[in-house]
Design a binder for these strands. Structure first.
Lengths: 137, 137
DNA sequence: GGTTGACCTGGAGCGCACTCCAGCTTCTAC
DNA sequence: GTAGAAGCTGGAGTGCGCTCCAGGTCAACC
């Protein structure tokens, strides 16, 4: 909490990291690779993240969490700067990504079946076994 | 198909790669890091994968697909060599992993909500917009 | 006014999971 | 018996997404 009492709410990088769940290094890294715009700076040249910045970070995090590659996130970020004109392309990126996520969920679910089968199998095996330590004489 | 007509079914590395969906390099890599046992060799010293080998590869692929780190897969592979005695630990690994997969599915699903929201938003925005090219005079 | 701690920069390093390469052997087909 | 395809080995290289570091600045508190 290092606000100069003038601007409503800005966050030092440590606070922004805490709130976004990213590391300080990652925040600077995201800025470097232009995933986020350079945030405002305070009088001492330190980054001062706004609520909007945090909201964008939050959305980026959703995209990362769902496995969108950073390259594509950059493309999305770039389009964002063009405002409304790029709404179509951005929508298409998200739709495409939604398909990927749905497919991924399906993939995971199908692997779950195998896991369940294997686990059941082990359960049966173990139940059938005489206890390993106290062998039944 | 390079079988000497004696052994029932073995597969050259290219065929094994094709059937497992892994690359030839990955098969050799998995062997190097002891995820799989060295397969049999034919008279010329070439790898000859069995159906059992392929089944194990198939299972490994499920684990990888669901994000199990290779280190843990190695641990699982190691336990496997101890036979029935390690059924308990192996079951525990799979149960733990199942939890991870379920959590991951939930995470993806919750991100989907955000994606859907955003996409709807774009749809509304775009619908409200006068067509970009043929501006309404 | 000196120390402490948060933050700054540019750049190097890292862990993971492959992937590629050079140089060699071996089988197959002509 | 020779060309070409497929496979072999050990080791180096790659792409991704961070993560760490050295050396410096700045502000605040004692």
């Amino acid at each position: 909490m290092t606000q100069p009492t003038t601007q409503p709410t800005t966050y030092a990088i440590a606070e922004a990291a805490h709130r976004s769940g990213l590391s300080i290094d990652t925040l600077r890294y995201y800025e470097r690779i232009q995933l986020i715009d350079p945030p405002a700076r305070d009088s001492g040249g330190r980054r001062a993240y706004s609520d909007d910045d945090l909201a964008w970070l939050g959305f980026l995090t959703k995209l990362r969490t769902t496995g969108m590659p950073i390259k594509l996130m950059r493309e999305y970020a770039r389009l964002r700067h063009q405002g409304l004109a790029s709404a179509g392309p951005r929508k298409r990126i998200l739709e495409r990504h939604r398909e990927d996520v749905l497919a991924r969920i399906e993939e995971l679910r199908s692997c779950l079946d195998v896991l369940n089968y294997k686990i059941d199998n082990y359960a049966t095996l173990i139940a059938a076994e005489p206890r390993p330590q106290e062998a039944s004489a």
